[in-house]
Computed example of a mutant assay.
Amino acid sequence: MNVLFVHGMGRSPLSGWPLMYQLEQAGCHTQSFGYLVCIEPFSSIQARLEKRICELASFGPYILVGHSLGGVLIRAALGRLQQDMIPAPEHVFLLGSPIMPSRLAQKLSPNILFRTLTRDCGQMLASSERMAAVGAIVYPTTSIVGVMGISWKQGPFHGDENDGVVSVSEVSADWLTDEVKLPIVHSFLPSSKQVAGVILARLHM
């Protein structure tokens, strides 16, 4: 099984190394897709990812794993590629990846430092219109979300279960195949053995 990992905003492909190692040990062939939000708009990253997925699909069965913004990029790319009749992924895994606008991004979007560091991608996550335009995935999709975040009712999540960056409600949708909650914070989802276990279980490996 070929695996493509797409990291989250402000991270790098190295953030998925622990997870990729676990999958390699189980017999998967893994690779990563990298980008920098401070120099590249969402549309440009998405276009590069579409090409990368097409290349990956030509080598046989594959799955896609996206952390946070990486999952949004995967959904956007697949939305375009569904029309091109490329081989479908066996499964898609979204790790703490928002499906609706991010409350935290909306709160931070006016901040000059946030805007400078995250640019178009940060504004994308905060935009109701742009996030709504990223449609559902028609392939088997598992959302893996951490629930070891902030419980303070006055915080950005208003007491909802969350991983410190996104709430469970932000990563949920009726089109998902299933949703798995784990006691992990957002940043550690790509390095969790528990996440690797969920992925391998869904692949029956």
Rank of each mutant, 00 (worst) to 15 (best):
R115S: 14
R115W: 10
T118P: 03
D120Q: 14
C121G: 01
C121V: 08
G122S: 09
G122I: 14
Q123E: 15
Q123I: 09
M124L: 15
M124D: 05
M124A: 00
L125I: 11
L125W: 13
A126D: 11
S127T: 14
S127Q: 04
S127G: 11
E129K: 15
E129P: 00
R130W: 00
M131G: 00
M131V: 02
M131L: 14
A133H: 03
G135W: 03
G135C: 00
G135R: 02
G135D: 00
G135E: 00
A136H: 12
A136W: 09
I137P: 05
V138D: 03
V138Y: 00
Y139D: 03
Y139S: 03
Y139V: 15
P140R: 05
P140M: 01
T142G: 07
T142R: 05
S143P: 03
I144S: 06
I144N: 07
I144T: 05
V145W: 05
V145S: 14
V145Y: 14
G146Q: 01
V147T: 13
V147F: 10
G149V: 03
G149Q: 04
I150F: 04
S151N: 10
S151A: 13
S151E: 05
W152H: 14
W152D: 15
W152T: 14
K153P: 10
K153D: 03
Q154Y: 13
